[in-house]
Design a protein around this nucleic acid. Structure first.
Length: 644
RNA sequence: GGACCUGUGGUGCAGCUAGGAGUGCACGCCGGCCUGUCAAGCCGGAGGUCGCGGGUUCAAAUCCCGUCAGGUCCGCCA
């Protein structure tokens, strides 16, 4: 017997990096551990060097190919892959039966090898089969790439998880989490667990409430993040903290949002912003290497205002171009009403001149739905070739000519607006956008924020590649503003959270022009997904008071809501800052998945349900009474009349 | 709170624009044949409230209204 094939295989493969195995199971070679119990080998590792050896295998029946009573092929599957077993007696094996087999490995007869299978050179001549469990036909195929309806998949999640895709994702996730943990430990961080039963912090995301049985009428909440706890750990002198932390937010679900999600939560004392970014960069880099086996690219850096100006968003997808171009100067004194606005911005869609009128109307509608006053479009056509230009005459649109200063032939603009443009305006559009014949220029004239965000969204609509496509582009977005807009009562709203340290150069603006104050906060963005965010925190009472003041939070209210944090700061708070990385999103992108459900073992539907368990469910009256909630039940027949 | 897409034997689709008997394809399932297959093959068979409710019509999977479920997005996510 060979009790420890793992080490020898790893050595033979000579792989320093965790490249995936030949069976395509998504696991590092030799990662299955020692086979024990009913098995002494893994199905996916039955290869040529075992020829002549007896093996015991256990797993699921993948396929049965029956050639009469005396020749039956059974593919036996376990997490490591499959191997063909040959039986010479008729048996009652069916797909997904759970079996243990014993037999002898032998080379397949010449000409019957299967090159698509890692174990395809050999087969197991079976002398005993033990059916451990019979199985009903699965509700959807376990093998293959066809996806069943979402409810069906979630109702039978244990079957769905048996499939190759999710098995691979679960293992990739485990490797990523392990790499993150190792990277943080290597950098001197201490893993600390923080409470799940926390206290309400009325600000930020909606929280899940947990009724207290011992103190009826009072509630814990589940933490939307360990933010305050980790700052208290800094006051406690932990100095470098991290946690693979579950966070819970009672907000509407999306492709990249579940109620509960996992963060790599990090906080460190006596550090600069760049040092925090360095710690996180190293962790993410190691995670990417663990997941893909290839080196992650360096993380780029943009300021928040650069990101907004060039990509119309604070989470730019840098995998493709189509940057926003500023035309405000060109249209500063325009006579065209539709283009008269504080800010005029444009994007250029390569080859977009061929879009038909209905398609363009759709874009205009989309822009309006996003809040813009309107959307101007200009087809870029070759000058003096009107008759051959698609749609130019049919739409009855006027054409404005300009001798292109840019590359290629002279160009003109085709658009209902084109004949209203002055010569310099036409030339300005062509020059600023660098548009070529056949392109489409889209222009939004509006307030700065709106013009940017609308074009940023259109840029994504028109140009964004699928999630896993192309080399990943990591980018730090830094210098976020401290505040973003105002609430209904005209009070400033914290962009990150109220403990974020203002940029040192902008401290004086707090009282005079708070909207212009930058903060020491930063986001990590991967392929247009916000992977996480962080900041340097305020540790000085005087600065904190000035920020609370700017936020319109009176001292008494601040003490009531955050007293246990500011109180702790009185006893010696080190300067500190941190970050949190969204693990589900990171894993999803590394796995090439569009939805984080595919990297979570038991996710919920968009309406927050679990079709498998039926959760959420009503609680029995007795349970409600014990929690002090009985009086608050709203029965359908009394809805709207009960107390609220 | 809102917008859009989807819902047809166990699974994935087509059928709907232009109403005419539950019509079709692939997989799976059940049975038979079959000693080298590997998504085995060949033959036969079973399996359906066309998500649900209402309306229009001589007639509805198909058109209309409502509703439920799933998905994508806006709002929301300090």
């Amino acid at each position: 017997m060979d009790p420890a094939p793992v080490g020898t295989r790893r050595q033979r493969a000579g792989e320093a990096s965790p490249a995936t195995d030949a069976a395509g199971t998504g696991a590092p070679a030799g990662a299955w551990g020692v086979a024990v119990g009913l098995r002494d080998h893994w199905a996916g590792e039955v290869t040529g060097d075992l020829v002549g050896r007896p093996v015991h295998l256990a797993g699921w029946v993948d396929t049965v190919r029956r050639h009469g009573e005396h020749l039956v092929f059974v593919d036996l599957r376990d997490r490591s892959g499959l191997v063909q077993c040959v039986l010479d007696t008729g048996t009652e094996l069916r797909s997904e039966y759970v079996v243990a087999v014993s037999g002898t490995v032998r080379r397949r007869p010449a000409g019957t090898e299967n090159e698509r299978l890692a174990t395809g050179a050999v087969e197991v001549a079976v002398d005993a089969v033990d059916v451990l469990s019979e199985a009903a036909p699965p509700p959807f195929p376990v093998r293959g790439a066809v996806e069943a309806d979402e409810v069906t998949r979630l109702t039978y999640r244990y079957v769905d998880l048996r499939r190759e895709r999710l098995q691979r994702n679960l293992r990739l996730r485990a490797r990523v989490v392990s790499a993150l943990r190792q990277a943080m430990e290597q950098q001197g961080f201490t893993e600390v667990e923080t409470p799940l039963l926390w206290t309400p912090t009325p600000e930020g995301a909606r929280e899940f409430a947990v009724p207290s049985r011992l103190q009826r009428g009072s509630f814990y909440v589940l933490p939307q993040s360990p933010q305050i706890a980790k700052q208290l750990l800094m006051v406690a002198g932990v100095d470098r903290y991290f946690q693979i932390a579950r966070c819970l937010r009672d907000e509407d679900l999306r492709a990249d949002r579940q109620f509960e999600f996992t963060q790599l939560d990090v906080e460190a004392s006596f550090v600069t912003q760049d040092e925090v970014l360095g710690f996180v960069s190293e962790a993410v880099r190691q995670a990417a290497v663990a997941a893909t086996g290839t080196a992650a690219p360096p993380i780029e850096r943009l300021t928040w205002s650069e990101a907004l100006d060039r990509y119309g968003t604070d989470k730019p997808d840098l995998r493709f171009g189509m940057p926003l171009v500023d035309l405000s100067g060109i249209f500063a004194g325009t006579s065209v009403g539709a283009l008269s606005a504080p800010v005029v911005k444009a994007i250029c869609l390569e080859g977009g001149a061929g879009l038909g009128r209905s398609r363009l109307d759709g874009l205009v509608a989309r822009a309006k739905a996003l809040g813009a006053r309107g959307l101007a479009w200009f087809r870029v056509l070759a000058a003096e070739t009107d008759e051959r230009d698609a749609g130019a005459e049919r739409t009855g649109a006027g054409g404005a000519h300009a001798d292109g200063a840019g590359p290629g032939a002279s160009r003109r603009l085709d658009s209902p607006l084109a004949r209203h443009l002055s010569g310099p305006e036409t030339a300005g559009i062509l020059e600023a956008t660098g548009a070529s014949v056949g392109d489409l220029v889209l222009v939004v004239a509006d307030e700065h924020q709106l013009a940017c965000s609308v074009l940023g969204q259109l840029r994504l609509d028109l140009g964004r590649p699928p999630v896993g496509n192309g080399p990943p582009r990591y980018v730090w977005v830094v210098d976020f503003p401290l505040f973003e807009g105002r609430d209904e009562e005209g009070r400033l709203v914290a962009a990150h959270h109220p403990f974020t340290m203002p940029h040192p150069e902008d401290l004086e603006l707090l009282a005079t022009a708070p909207e212009r104050v930058r903060s020491q906060s930063y986001d990590l963005v991967l392929n247009g997904w916000e992977l996480g965010s962080g900041s340097i925190r305020i540790h000085r009472a005087d600065i904190q008071e000035r920020v609370f003041d700017a936020l319109g939070i009176p001292p008494a209210e601040a003490a009531e809501r955050f007293g246990f944090l500011t109180g702790a700061f009185r006893y010696g708070a080190p300067p500190h800052g941190g970050f949190a990385v969204g693990v589900d999103r990171l894993v999803a992108i590394l796995a090439g998945e569009e939805n984080i459900r595919e990297v979570i073992a038991f996710p919920k539907t968009q309406s927050g349900g679990d079709p498998m368990t039926g959760a959420p469910k009503p609680l029995a009256a007795r349970a409600l009474a014990e929690l002090g909630l009985a009086g608050r039940v709203r029965r359908p027949d009394t809805a709207g009349t009960g107390e609220d």
